[in-house]
Amino acid sequence: IYGGFALFLVILFRMVIYRCLRRLLSLGFGANNILVLGATEAGRKIAEALAKTPERGQRVVGFVDERFQVMEHEFANVPVLGKYADLASLIKKYKVTGIIIAHESSSPQEIMRVLVWVCDQPVHIYLVPELYSVVHGRFKANLVYGFELQELFAFTMPLWQVRVKRVIDILFGAFLGLISFPVCVLAAIAIKLEDRGPVFYSQERIGLYGKPFTVYKFRTMRTDAEKFGAQWATKDDPRITKVGKFLRKTRIDELPQILCVLKGDMSMVGPRPERAVFIAKLREEIPFYISRLKMKPGLTGWAQVCHHYDTSTEDVKIKLRYDMYYFENMSLLLDFQILVRTVYVVLTGKGAQ
């Protein structure tokens, strides 16, 4: 009797909470702010459908369209707020959490161009069904709350795993830093004895959602290595010092990045952090390269253990596929697998450049 009564109270309590939440959402409390890209007929249907069902918790705050300067600034009873170039400021101003792409053209190139504007923003990206076929088979997608929207670049890692991942980063980073301290001291002495130059070098890299941060590494190249500008390392690169070659082969040069892990700019596992100058170039050449910025960069990662150092744009394309696989399948189990494979890579020198 007690068990049946307890079950009845639990079900009743959940129903009351469910009804209360739906009522609050229907009144506009706690709704997610949405921008619709494209003042089109598909965009109108989406805006009207969401307006009729506020309990879904999605509220369209405005449209964004490239014809902003030559069209009416209201569409489907919703304001037209600007062009695609204004997305970053609009997302911040209206506290937008999601973007629905209802672009008029079904050309893959046009859809790719639109996505490049938004895939590095801290928002959910939805696509109307008519356009999903354009990218079908290239990205994982989910039906959103039973509504006819497909989500691209859906973050699938549960929140509890995200928190555990951060705890692991701190504990594992501190442990790795402690046991590797003697090795770091020897590396610093060797670098200093070879050419009397600085032991460390620092660079600005781009992290989660485009946030810049400073990364630290042991110097493995001559002090004038980039006198002609930023460039990728090549096989048997003459700029690499003798000590630097050993440090790169054993991955000891990466150890100072543990500081970035402890600070929270990086994780133990994630895509390789890239420099702004290369990102500006690669986002023009490789569709969706910028989507890597939806992940916190890592000391090691799926792409790093499966492929060698980047030496060309073709290498970057290959690594992007590995990075997107990691994003779509991110889990603590996969992180553990990558860490184990990293030990193998370090011991064998696989992929060193």
Rank of each mutant, 00 (worst) to 15 (best):
I286N: 11
V78E: 00
Y322C: 13
D310Q: 13
Q304K: 01
G298Q: 10
W232P: 01
V346L: 01
R272V: 03
T223N: 07
T311F: 00
L171V: 15
V343H: 00
K249S: 02
V80S: 06
D236P: 07
P256N: 05
E72S: 14
R283V: 15
R283S: 11
K95R: 13
F288M: 15
Y201T: 07
K165N: 12
A230R: 01
G270T: 05
G229R: 05
V243S: 02
V10R: 07
R113G: 09
E110R: 04
L259Q: 03
L320S: 11
V16Y: 12
H73S: 04
I46P: 01
R341M: 14
E328Q: 15
G197K: 08
P182M: 05
F8I: 08
P238A: 12
D335K: 05
I286D: 08
D253Q: 07
R321N: 15
V316A: 15
L259Y: 11
M295C: 13
V345C: 07
A141Y: 10
E226W: 07
A174I: 14
A141W: 02
N32W: 13
V305T: 02
D236Q: 10
L152V: 10
G57T: 02
P79D: 00
W160A: 14
V185E: 03
R321Y: 10
A174N: 01
A187P: 05
F200G: 00
E284C: 12
D65G: 05
V144W: 10
S105Y: 04
L347E: 00
T313W: 11
R67T: 02
L21H: 14
S267E: 01
Y132F: 15
D195A: 05
V70K: 09
Y216Q: 04
K217N: 06
R219E: 02
P198M: 09
L347T: 07
F5I: 15
E104L: 09
K263D: 02
A225W: 06
I279Y: 11
V80D: 02
H308Q: 14
E204P: 09
S267Q: 04
G210V: 10
E204M: 12
K227H: 06
S267H: 01
V144D: 04
R283W: 00
I338L: 11
V183T: 08
D65T: 08
I240E: 01
T342P: 02
P122F: 09
Q161K: 10
N32E: 15
D120T: 03
F218H: 01
F8S: 09
R23T: 13
Y84N: 12
T97W: 04
K192Y: 13
P271F: 06
